[in-house]
Design a protein around this nucleic acid. Structure first.
Length: 181
DNA sequence: ATAGCGATGTTCT
DNA sequence: GAACATCGCTATA
């Protein structure tokens, strides 16, 4: 089993921390774009009131209940797309929200998709738009699909804190940030 | 620098 | 009808 799948198959908080510093790549519409992940959040299964899977399986969150290493893409506030890496055993419903990264490849393509050259991939909606990811990619494999996580984690200083933008279970320290060395 | 607000699909009360 | 794992514009200081 690959290093990535072993990481995603385990505990969601450990998986979130372990995803920091890894490279997220999209190969979409013939263009390749890549970022180093610097901000992620863990979302648990039916035991986490802040998770989309808290109330069980629905049409939207079905991918969350799939096997680890699957991509879960959902629409946020009816406008943005957001990416998650599914973790834990199949049926658990846990995933890591990919909230931001630093562009390292295909930067012009990302700036073009974003329509600006600042704040290119710092934020979940911005990250998805920069990489060209949409609901079409929901359920794809993060190992061999058009959106992949690859490589050895970049080194840096990790900061832990409460998840942002939620109103329930705000006490869980499940937000992880990486400051590259 | 910070605050307010509009956009809008899916889920929940 | 309201909330929501957001973002970017506008106004005010």
């Amino acid at each position: 089993m690959s290093d990535l799948l072993r990481l995603l198959g385990g505990d969601v908080a450990a998986a979130a921390r372990g995803l920091l510093g890894r490279t997220l790549i999209s190969e979409i519409e013939g263009a390749s774009s890549a970022v180093v992940l610097t901000e992620v959040e863990a979302y648990g299964g039916e035991d986490d009131p802040a998770s989309h899977s808290f109330r069980g399986r629905t049409a939207r969150n079905a991918a969350m209940f799939g096997p680890p290493g699957m991509l879960y893409v959902y629409r946020s506030y009816g406008i943005h797309w957001c990416l998650n890496a599914v973790t834990g055993p199949e049926g658990r419903g846990s995933a890591v929200l990919l909230r931001g990264g630093i562009p390292i490849g295909g930067i012009e393509q990302m700036e073009q998709r974003r329509g600006r050259s600042d704040h290119v991939a710092d934020g979940p909606g911005r990250l998805a738009q920069a990489l060209g990811v949409t609901g079409d990619h929901n359920g794809a494999s993060l190992s061999v699909g058009p959106v992949r996580i690859e490589g050895v984690p970049a080194r840096g200083k990790i900061t832990v804190g409460p998840r942002v933008g939620i109103s329930r279970a705000t006490d869980r320290p499940w937000r992880f940030l990486l400051e590259l060395v």
